[in-house]
């Protein structure tokens, strides 16, 4: 299986956007080599600003640029982009509904051996609870290319989350994505697996394993956490009535919670959530951490059996 870097895709599409539109600006906080914006600096030096290790200032500067019609992309790691600059995002960007984008690499457990200080497992929950904010995590390299472009084209604040480690390629360059619309990537009738970001591949693997056991699982890539595609969730409820959510995030407040909200208000259907069990993880290789903290296809299969009472 081929793997490609989602942060590389971000760096590449950012340059394409920069070429097409001189309103695209980039603000970094001393980790541009790591968030892959370096090329943008070479191509458009007058629209790229590395303001140093000062994330709160970065968010404020982006807000100021956005008031004049520029489209700034703040580029940093997920922990800093969601938490260090949080109140600036909330009050200087989202409250006035300014057109600034926060694009972060190192989401979830992907910064593996850096450890919990660098693993953002709270950011989905935090970002989706801010009014006006759109929250997106693409499922692979090609999805990043399309969704970053869509985020640049829409008006308003967007939080875009990528991975540090490269992740399996599941799409082709021809696949299309729409912000706010889940993507059904595998049909099935017995159970619905709804996943986001780096967990979409694990969901596909689990569906294959279930298939071998005679269970037909559908897989939905819910790349947009907010606004959540309630329609596709309701379709799943009507079709299978059994939903498993999968996310590289705390079990609290992320995709599982968002989908549970829809299911609860619908009044039918069952949900099981796969995510990090409300604990800080640890240093270690990303794939080993996924296994240890239950973010793998085996655990999805276990949850599926639970819900199907097998």
């Amino acid at each position: 299986m081929e793997k490609k870097g989602t942060r590389d895709a971000f760096g590449e599409v950012l340059c394409e956007l920069g070429r097409e539109n001189d309103k695209i600006f980039v603000i970094d906080a001393d980790i541009s080599a790591s968030t892959k914006t370096t090329k943008f600096y070479e191509l458009f030096p007058d629209r790229a600003f590395d303001i140093g290790i000062a994330e709160q200032n970065a968010a404020g500067i982006a807000a100021g640029l956005a008031t004049t019609g520029k489209i700034p992309f703040i580029s940093t790691y997920a922990v800093f982009g969601s938490m260090r600059m949080l109140e600036q995002i909330r009050t200087s960007i989202c409250y006035p509904n300014l057109n600034a984008k926060i694009a972060v690499s190192h989401g979830g457990l992907t910064p593996g051996n850096d450890g919990p200080t660098h693993q953002a497992i709270e950011d989905f929950g935090i970002m989706r609870s801010i009014p006006n904010m759109t929250v997106i995590m693409p499922g692979d390299y090609y999805a990043v290319k399309k969704l970053v472009r869509k985020a640049a084209e829409m008006y308003g604040p967007v939080y875009l989350r990528f991975t540090r480690d490269s992740i399996p390629v599941i799409y082709t360059p021809e696949d299309e994505f729409e912000i706010g619309k889940g993507k059904r990537i595998k049909e099935g009738n017995d159970i619905s697996i709804i996943a986001i970001g780096d967990m979409v591949y694990a969901a596909l693997q689990a569906a294959e394993k279930l298939n071998e056991m005679g269970i037909s699982a559908e897989v939905i890539d819910m790349h947009t956490l907010k606004p959540l595609d309630a329609d596709i969730v309701k379709e799943a409820i009507d079709k299978t009535g059994k939903i498993i959510t999968v996310e590289d995030h705390n079990i609290i407040n992320g995709l599982g919670s968002a989908i549970s909200e829809v299911v609860a208000e619908t009044g039918k259907g069952i949900v099981r959530r796969v995510g990090i069990n409300d604990t800080f993880a640890e240093s270690g290789e990303y794939t080993l951490l996924l296994e240890k903290y239950g973010l793998d296809s085996n655990n999805i299969v276990i949850k599926a059996k639970e819900i199907l009472r097998l």
């Binding site: 450890g115 919990p116 270690g284 080993l288």
Partner: peptide
């Protein structure tokens, strides 16, 4: 250092 199950995390704990 920095390996899974270690007491020596990538950043001080």
């Amino acid at each position: 250092l920095r390996k899974i199950n270690s007491r020596l995390q990538g950043h001080p704990d």
